[in-house]
């Protein structure tokens, strides 16, 4: 956009500021015990004051209350909005952005204030306005504007019970050919990978060799003692000089366990991990694969190789010989 076009665009969008998004929206349901109970169950937030009328009556609340975080839920549109979004003022504003290339949308943050507890029978009405639109900003997602809506919630007596500020970024998506941003363009979930091993001065050389397909064992150049895991000083002779040898990855199962729970994303379960006694004399913890884990025995001979186990991880793996 030329400066003139930008100016005209900004005049258009700023004309929306202060406008009501639509008529006040009365919640489809009054505050009620069933919805409170469902919410408490799903959120795992089953405080007695939400779910146990008898208990709640004996507290300072004097009876059941709705979880404060449900405030927004009482006047939500529900599932139909997914297919038939309301053509309200906010939608019209977004259309102006879309028409000028600001097609990206990102909910960035929200803050809510609560003025009183809601109780079964309360009727909640939402009053939403376009509150502010920022200056143009350069963000990690691309050039864009932050739009804040302010929703005030009132009860059956017209008293305010809470308010919520919701902020979204409307932006021109950065070049989708740019690898750094490709993930924001791709709606398919990325496949989780294993946790990356933290690398520092004392171990990165080992992992770098692993990345290249080699498993090394640190060796003291003064007394020739092999050591694993690597350390900066030889515990035998206190030398800080060392080199390394490459392991043949011949070994046997010294101990092992098969992990079932918790299931961490990026790992396959059951997941067998062994302490492998290497023929060189040191031990290495690594996965044992391609075997029915119930047949693994301590003392079993295994042979290792370094393999790519996911999109970004090279690791030693062991199989029965």
């Amino acid at each position: 956009m030329t400066p003139e076009e930008t100016k005209a665009f900004e005049e258009k969008i700023h004309a929306f500021v202060g406008r009501e998004n639509g008529p006040p929206k009365r919640g489809n349901d009054d505050v009620n015990e069933a919805m409170i109970r469902h919410w408490a169950e799903v959120m795992g937030d089953e405080l007695g004051t939400y779910t146990d009328a008898e208990y709640a009556a004996g507290t300072g609340k004097g009876g059941l209350i709705a979880p404060p975080a449900m405030l927004q839920a009482w006047s939500m549109e529900g599932y139909p909005m997914a297919e038939n979004p309301a053509q309200d003022i906010q939608r019209q504003l977004h259309n102006v952005f879309d028409a000028h290339g600001f097609t990206g949308v990102l909910g960035t943050n929200t803050s809510t204030e609560f003025f009183r507890d809601l109780k079964p029978g309360d009727q909640v009405t939402a009053h939403c306005i376009i509150d502010t639109i920022s200056e143009q900003k350069a963000t990690g997602r691309g050039i864009g504007y932050f739009i804040e809506t302010l929703t005030t919630y009132t009860d059956q007596n017209g008293e305010e019970v809470g308010k919520q500020v919701f902020r979204v970024l409307k932006f021109i998506p950065a070049d989708s050919n740019d690898a750094a941003d490709s993930s924001t363009e791709d709606d398919s979930p990325s496949v989780p990978t294993r946790i990356t091993s933290p690398r520092g001065h004392d171990n990165s050389w080992w992992w770098k060799a692993c990345d290249e397909g080699k498993i090394l064992i640190q060796r003291c150049t003064s007394c020739q003692t092999l050591r694993h895991p690597p350390r900066p000083m030889c515990g035998e002779c206190q030398s800080i000089e060392w080199d390394s040898i490459e392991s043949t990855l011949d070994g046997e199962v010294y101990s092992f366990t098969t992990l079932h729970y918790p299931k961490i994303p990026g790992y396959q379960y059951p997941n067998t991990v062994g302490v492998i006694q290497l023929s060189e004399g040191t031990r290495l913890v690594a996965n044992i694969v391609d075997i029915d884990y119930e047949t693994i025995k301590i003392g079993m001979k295994v042979k290792g190789s370094v393999e790519q186990v996911d999109e970004k991880t090279m690791l030693p793996v062991f199989r029965p010989e």
Binding site: R194, I195, T196, S197, P198, R199, N203, W207, P229, L259, I264, Y267, N271, V273, V285, A286, N287, T313, L315
Partner: peptide, 9 residues
């Protein structure tokens, strides 16, 4: 680092 990549967490 010697354990996390293998799932020993």
């Amino acid at each position: 680092s010697w354990y996390m990549a293998y799932g020993m967490l």
